[in-house]
Design a protein around this nucleic acid. Structure first.
Length: 878
RNA sequence: GCGAGAGUGGCGGAACUGGCAGACGCGCGAGACUUAGGAUCUCGUGGGAAACCGUGGGGGUUCGAGUCCCUCCUCUCGCACCA
């Protein structure tokens, strides 16, 4: 028999080879066709792909293949986010050079991705650790430096006192060093920054344009940028210090300024020292400041951290009440935000309230609730903005919103201060004291100072042999050959910057590089980037909702302002796929257990293979090595094939929701493909005589409109519509695949009947159905689809075929089933011609035997008719 | 605490604008073909003996509510001293 068993290994390898040899998915700019840029977040080459990758890239590949079939010229590239810490750890732990380790991983993972049958243009592959790529990181850095978008300043870094090293944020786990578990402290270092805050307002406003992004990602971006509109106000000192007549604060609640009964400074503020100099309080205050800044990050940032502070001995004057108010230092005031000093209004700010209560500072009510029920002493701060001002001189009686405006006017008119906007977004610190990253292209010269490496000297390549110990600061600092350099300006002795760039820099513009990946003179070819950008559909994990996406949006604007591209936003539409999860198992003796470490069964209970104790079934959690609930895609693909792996991960849940792993679900996906395989091969002899071209025409020509033909064609065209709409509507692949399953179930019924009849018209309609099935299946399971396409007599690759279109006329039913309700409960179902009018359907429903039982002896009060859908007869007692 | 999202059969999940709840898959049951089948094909499968009851609980709007409104509960994910 022709069908035999479906051999996925052979078939998948065969088509992967064919696609590669024919360069099926290589693209160039084509003015004749609309472009479509489909992009999935590129992976870190950690060694092997995981199920999250499978899902991410399966989703992206369906989009790319579907859009291609819809006539778009699709750019679908892939590459490697290849710089990063794990490579350095491998070097420290196993003595493998990061470059070797990375290259080997890339080679392995590339082969894995190829085995998934993903329709990438591999000729555009990039790896960020290659000098050809990171050269342009450096080039962009220098352009930013020219525009003062890159600058250097002192800043606090995470420091592990035991390892004596700087830690990246992601190496700090709950305030502790990931390696030795010591408490991480903050240490001041000179670091490079990108001035992302210059674009804060634009990045915020841009969110409104991103209609193709999930609302929650936009919310997270907006919150991260954190715009606050308020005023800065000077509070004069009661006894001005030399050169320090006043302390400037920032507030968004200027309406409460009459309630400011003290001030608080951040412990880090340099003003503290100037205020306490020569006072008896100085010693105690210094001690307090030292204690707070010595505190570990985890302790300092804990949510329930107790508010504490110390009085400086100095007083300020509230410019509105003229009251003399004490100046404190408080642990909860942030030096980095606003002016590092606040006016404290205990009646209307919970933090100030707690502080005031603890230290016996007066609480002054200045906003009264609309119902007037607030009375002193307050049990807690009233922070709500509903209400009116009281105890606020000429401003008393104003509503909060109005008072904010009037007080801001007043502050400006009197010269007390100015309206100000603050963002919680901070400039992006890009210096990393690591080896495996892009060297920052800067030289320090005794005579000339900070000197950028001339563009002609790029790239500054990473020296190959550098001892990596994980101790101390930048590894590059120990590479004398690298550090010692002539100053490009004066030729004198210079010293290279030894920090490397944050790897987020690499991923902030890689999507631009894909447009012209081998461009040698610039980071990108403006004509090509102009053609392809922006990315039409970006797909990746929600974990990048803030940082990566925000940095990429910033880079896009910065590169735009260098004149290289024209777009403002990099990603028009964003799909954040859910996590891949699986149940966990735990043994009280041996901890988390792999599936393979379990004995027993679901019914009889699971046991630990090692000790025989019962294994407790835990909750469904994100697949992770630590929980031992991972599934290796390689095994999955080897056993079931890439098509099954893809189909399962697309069918089990909608893309943006979490997906729960299920062995049975994989079986189901595999079984479905087997069903398709057998069905199509069963039909091949029947449909062989019918042209592969224009099946619809041959159906029409030979059809004598038998009921079988009509029903078959209706099923075919309904399926085309359903699958198309589900893909177009938010990529609902799970329901699209369900529709294909229904199609196949339906076709199985037709084959039995049709083989009996064997009429020409029906065979032609079957040809149409089978062709449609294979085409509709192809984005999801491309290998088996190609094989079936060829088996049914087609000479060309499916990948270049057009997506089928449905004929609306064929979808129409001629007989409808209308449920008839009595008082909202279904009592009967009517089969009526689709052409019937309301009156005809209503009349038929009232004469229906089953309906009559329910309306007999009752008064018909109302009849609701929903066109072509339902009748509801409302009756009451006679 | 604040913000967002979600609670539907034994399980994963369907149900676009209010209109037959449970598509599709898994699991389970029955049958067919078989030396055999954990393969394949067909049929059935929310609960209940039934009237009826069923989309986290309670209330409301409506001829009609999984869907809209109010309220409460639970879970998940973000942000958590940003003045």
């Amino acid at each position: 028999m022709a069908e035999q068993h479906y051999d996925h290994q052979h078939t998948e390898a065969k088509w992967q080879r064919a696609w590669a040899e024919q360069e099926t998915f290589c693209v160039t700019e084509d003015p004749a066709r609309p472009k479509y840029y489909c992009l999935e977040m590129f992976p870190y080459p950690s060694g092997r792909i995981h199920m999250g990758h499978v899902r991410n890239y399966a989703i992206g590949d369906v989009v790319a293949r579907y859009k291609r079939m819809r006539g778009f010229n699709v750019l679908h590239p892939m590459g490697w986010d290849a710089f990063g810490l794990p490579a350095e750890n491998a070097a420290i732990e196993r003595g493998v050079h990061p470059q070797i380790w990375t290259q080997e991983n890339i080679a392995y993972m590339r082969a894995q991705l190829k085995r998934m049958g993903l329709s990438y243009d591999w000729s555009r592959e990039i790896a960020t650790c290659e000098p050809d790529y990171y050269k342009w990181n450096q080039w962009l850095f220098l352009e930013f430096y020219k525009k003062k978008l890159a600058y250097k300043k002192h800043s606090a870094v995470n420091w592990c006192p035991s390892c004596e090293t700087v830690l990246a944020n992601e190496q700090v786990e709950e305030g502790r060093c990931w390696r030795c578990d010591s408490g991480v402290i903050q240490k001041e270092l000179e670091q490079w920054f990108f001035r992302i805050t210059q674009y804060a307002e634009e990045l915020l406003k841009g969110c409104d344009q991103l209609t193709g992004w999930p609302a929650r990602v936009l919310t997270m971006q907006r919150n991260w940028i954190g715009k606050s509109v308020g005023v800065e106000v000077d509070f004069p000192l009661a006894e001005p210090a030399p050169g320090l007549p006043a302390i400037r604060i920032f507030t968004t609640r200027q309406d409460t300024i009459f309630g400011a009964t003290f001030m608080s400074l951040a412990p880090e503020s340099p003003l503290v020292e100037r205020l306490i100099a020569g006072r008896p309080e100085a010693v105690a205050v210094r001690e307090f400041v030292a204690r707070v800044s010595r505190q570990e990050k985890a302790v300092r940032t804990a949510a329930d951290r107790e508010k504490e502070g110390i009085f400086t001995g100095a007083y300020a004057i509230n410019p509105f009440t003229q009251a003399k108010i004490p100046i404190w230092v408080a642990n909860f005031v942030l030096y980095e935000y606003g002016t590092g000093a606040i006016m404290a209004v205990p009646a209307h700010d919970q933090r100030d309230f707690e502080f005031a209560t603890r230290y016996g500072i007066p609480v002054r009510l200045v906003i009264q609730k609309p119902d007037g029920t607030l009375a002193e002493p307050l049990p807690a701060a009233y922070e709500d903005e509903a209400g009116a001002l009281v105890n606020s001189a000429q401003f008393s009686g104003l509503g909060v919103a109005e008072a904010k405006a009037k007080l801001a006017d007043y502050v400006e008119a009197k010269g007390f201060g100015t309206r100000t906007v603050n963002y919680r977004l901070r400039d992006w610190g890009v210096s990393r004291q690591r080896y495996w990253g892009t060297p920052i292209p800067i030289i320090y010269c005794q005579a000339c100072g900070t000197v950028p490496v001339p563009a002609a000297d790029l790239p500054v390549t990473l020296p190959r042999d550098v001892p990596l110990t994980g101790k101390g600061s930048s590894p590059l600092a120990r590479a004398a050959q690298f550090v010692q350099v002539k100053c490009p300006k004066c030729g004198g002795a210079g010293r290279r910057e030894t920090d490397t760039m944050d790897t987020f820099v690499d991923s902030s513009w890689y999507f631009l590089r894909y447009c012209s990946p081998r461009e040698g003179a610039r980071p990108l070819d403006p004509a090509k980037a102009g053609h392809w950008m922006a990315v039409d559909q970006y797909i990746g994990g929600i974990e990048h909702a803030v940082l990566h996406l925000l940095y990429a949006r910033f880079f896009t604007r910065a590169v735009r302002d260098l004149g290289l591209i024209k777009v403002d936003e990099p990603f028009l539409s964003l799909l954040t796929q859910g996590m891949v999860c699986k149940e966990t198992y735990r043994c009280e003796e041996h901890g988390w257990l792999f599936q393979d470490d379990l004995a027993g069964s679901e019914q009889d209970g699971w046991r630990c293979k090692q000790c025989g104790r019962p294994a407790e079934k835990g909750r469904v959690e994100k697949m992770s090595k630590s929980k031992k609930n991972v599934v290796d895609p390689e095994r999955l693909i080897a056993t079931y094939g890439a098509d099954t792996a893809r189909l399962f991960s697309l069918f089990a849940a909608p893309p943006e929701k979490d997906l729960e792993w299920s062995d049975a679900g994989v079986e189901g996906a595999s079984r479905f493909l087997g069903r398709v395989w057998r069905l199509v091969h069963d039909m091949t002899p029947i449909i062989a005589g019918f042209a592969t071209e224009a099946p619809a025409a041959s159906v029409a020509a030979s059809s004598r409109a038998s009921s079988v033909t009509i029903a078959l064609r209706r099923l075919t065209h309904r399926t085309i519509r359903k699958v198309t709409e589900d893909i177009e509507r938010e990529f609902q692949f799970n329901t699209a695949i369900a529709a294909l399953m229904e199609f196949v179930n339906g076709l199985y019924k037709f084959t039995a009947e049709t083989r009996e009849a064997g009429k020409a018209g029906e065979a032609a309609a079957l040809r149409e159905a089978v062709d449609a099935l294979v085409l509709l299946l192809s984005p999801f399971a491309p290998h088996i689809a190609e094989e079936l396409w060829a088996a049914t007599g087609h000479a060309t690759s499916l990948a270049r075929e057009r997506w089928p279109l449905y004929d609306a006329a064929l979808i129409q039913e001629d007989v409808l089933t209308i449920p008839v309700q009595v008082n909202g409960k279904v009592r009967s179902k009517l089969s009526v011609p689709a052409a019937w009018s309301k009156e005809q359907v209503v009349a038929a429903s009232q004469s229906d035997v089953k309906v009559r039982e329910w309306i007999q002896g009752k008064t018909v009060k109302n009849i609701v008719y929903v066109d072509k859908r339902l009748v509801n007869i409302v009756v009451g007692d006679a």
